[in-house]
């Protein structure tokens, strides 16, 4: 496995408040990495940096052996997509939303291919429906399909199942695992659900106060954590 991302002494500050300070982190190509931690730990900020929506104040972020700067070529940027906690969909049909990423890239797909993508997330029957009429679970599944249809090398997920019922959670986890196995898509998942991390992540990391406290293979992370903060977090205690 080669490194998809390498982060060195990466810092991000908002209004003189340091929100992220990662000394060293490598995210391997093709892995599913879960990041857990209390609210305000800097997890979402980290994802925004990995998605090139924002840029670090200091330190270095390397994406596929290329140093990330605001001038990162569009083709590189487009290798990464993200699914957010609350999906924002276009006022178009379900199919129209699915196609959007392809249209941006000047690519096309047959209707059969698109319907197959929707079928994967259980939305094929709703292809012509306005996306604004979807339930929360359906909207999140569409957001996932929209992010995957462009065949990204990296898929970032910011608490994608936080507001969903167990059926939708299971469906999304299944899609993530299948896509990772079939295409080798690198997945970085932020979750508050430690069981979710245990179910699907190959490695899990704990972020607290913008710092990466510990990162390890998921089984080790939960069964034999090294750091006290990780032990506390796994035990369900508050960590600050």
């Amino acid at each position: 496995m080669s490194a998809q991302y390498v982060l060195s002494d990466l810092t991000k500050t908002y209004a003189e408040r340091s929100v992220l300070n990662i000394a060293d982190l490598s995210i391997q190509s093709g892995e599913i990495l879960a990041l857990v931690g209390p609210s305000g730990a800097g997890k979402s900020t980290l994802l925004r940096l990995l998605n090139f929506l924002e840029f670090a104040d200091d330190g270095q972020l390397i994406f596929d052996q290329q140093v990330v700067t605001p001038d990162l070529p569009l083709a590189q940027r487009r290798r990464v997509t993200m699914v957010f906690q609350s999906p924002a969909l276009l006022k178009r049909s379900v199919l129209g939303n699915l196609k959007y990423g392809l249209q941006l890239r000047g690519e096309t797909a047959s209707k059969a291919e698109l319907l197959a993508h929707l079928d994967q997330v259980g939305l094929a029957d709703l292809a012509q429906q306005p996306a604004t009429k979807l339930s929360a679970g359906e909207a999140q599944r569409l957001a996932l399909a929209r992010a995957l249809v462009v065949k990204p090398d990296v898929l970032l997920l910011d608490e994608p199942t936080a507001n969903l019922d167990p059926y939708n959670v299971g469906l999304i986890e299944d899609i993530l695992q299948k896509n990772n196995a079939a295409r080798g898509t690198t997945v970085v998942l932020i979750t508050h659900n430690v069981f979710q991390a245990q179910r699907i992540a190959q490695r899990t990391g704990l972020l607290v106060n913008g710092k990466l406290v510990e990162i390890a293979p998921t089984a080790l992370f939960f069964e034999a954590p090294v750091e006290q903060a990780t032990r506390d977090f796994v035990a369900g205690k508050l960590v600050y």
């Binding site: 569009l74 997509t81 957010f84 924002a88 276009l90 990423g101 941006l104 992010a147 462009v150």
Partner: peptide, 24 residues
């Protein structure tokens, strides 16, 4: 506001984003 962020995340350039937001 989230729509602009999420469309950028999908790979929209500023120009594509502007056109999409006008349509929205």
């Amino acid at each position: 506001d989230q729509l602009a962020v999420q469309l950028t995340s999908l790979g929209a350039t500023r120009w594509q984003l502007a056109l999409t937001l006008v349509r929205e």
